[in-house]
């Protein structure tokens, strides 16, 4: 029994951290998909960029981890805002296939660019000493890094709750996600909201890419490699449904970890079985509309 509890704690903490990073990386896409209906397949590229920029800032500019990560996040968010105004704004009214291909093109450019700049190998981010130790929880020893990830995830969720429920910006954002033309008609500057949301989404992806590098190793193919899991979170959450994306990311993270722990021979396969089952049973509930 005690062993079971210990293994449960392990699964919840490891699965929870996995889910938290998934949430941080994916939530931007959930939000922008709801706002703009653009399947931004280059979303993972912004996450990768966050990780790589952190490395650059630490190694070249000698910044401390806790300075480099926020700096990278702000830089990527600014780049996101720029990209939204320069490129993505052109994608809003074109066919889905064209949106997919253009954003795949952007993702490819990122992959090639990262490979040219940083070489083809996996990079690791040196963690500061505070994060590299371990703590005892529930009778087991856990890396501080994992606890840190969970804390950041909780902070982001808290941040979302504060912004969405407590500020007028949040109210406008909710209105715009819900019904764009209606929001426009009531005098909300939807274009600015979209730009801010896109910047925030790419910034969060960068944060996930930077602090999550221990779980999702940084390599040039990162934008393509983790695209699938990001898209699955988005599809299961429903476009624009941030609250359910928290739940979905956590469930996927914990279920995946539990499956790998208890049924190692099934492993990652279990999570996709779950996805197919969910999609098959409730396509209408999962998706905005059904054909």
């Amino acid at each position: 029994m005690e062993q079971f509890l210990a293994s449960l704690a392990f699964i919840v903490l490891y699965g929870g951290t996995y889910g938290a990073v998934l949430f941080i990386i994916s939530v931007g896409l959930v939000m922008t998909m709801g706002l703009m209906r653009v399947p931004n397949l280059a979303h993972g590229a912004f996450a990768a960029l966050g990780g790589y920029l952190t490395i650059l800032l630490m190694n070249q500019a000698g910044m401390h981890y806790f300075v480099a990560v926020p700096a990278a996040v702000i830089l990527v968010a600014a780049l996101g805002a720029l990209a939204e105004r320069a490129i993505y704004v052109r994608l809003y009214n074109i066919p889905e296939l064209d949106q997919i291909l253009l954003t795949v093109g952007i993702a490819f450019i990122f992959v090639g660019g990262l490979a040219l700049t940083f070489g083809p190998n996996v990079f690791t981010i040196r963690l500061p000493e505070v994060l590299s130790g371990s703590v005892d929880l529930f009778g087991r020893s856990f890396p501080v890094y994992r606890v840190f990830l969970l804390a950041v995830g909780a902070l982001i969720i808290l941040g979302f709750w504060l912004v969405f429920d407590r500020t007028t910006l949040g109210a406008k954002l909710r209105a715009a996600v819900d019904n764009r033309s209606m929001a426009q008609a009531t005098g909300i500057n939807v274009e600015r909201i979209v730009m801010l949301a896109f910047a925030a989404g790419t910034g969060l992806a960068a944060l996930g890419g930077a602090i999550g590098a221990g779980l999702f190793p940084l390599e040039p193919l990162y934008p393509i490699k983790y695209l699938t899991i990001i898209l699955i979170i988005v599809a299961l959450s429903g476009f624009g449904n941030i609250k359910s994306s928290i739940v979905v990311a956590m469930v996927v993270g914990i279920a995946d970890t539990a499956a790998r722990y208890y049924l190692p021979e099934l492993g990652g396969f279990a999570i996709y079985a779950l996805v197919i089952a969910a999609v098959a049973m409730r396509p209408a509930g999962m998706f905005a509309r059904q054909g």
Binding site: M33, E96, I232, F239, G268, P283, R289, Q290, G291
Partner: peptide
């Protein structure tokens, strides 16, 4: 089953089926 869908849901479901087969083959 899947061709009833159009647009993004269709894209997502075809993707999910593809990934499912990949993971199945992997295991």
């Amino acid at each position: 089953f899947i061709l009833r869908l159009t647009g993004l849901p269709l894209v997502m479901v075809t993707l999910a089926v593809g990934v499912f087969l990949f993971e199945a083959a992997n295991k």
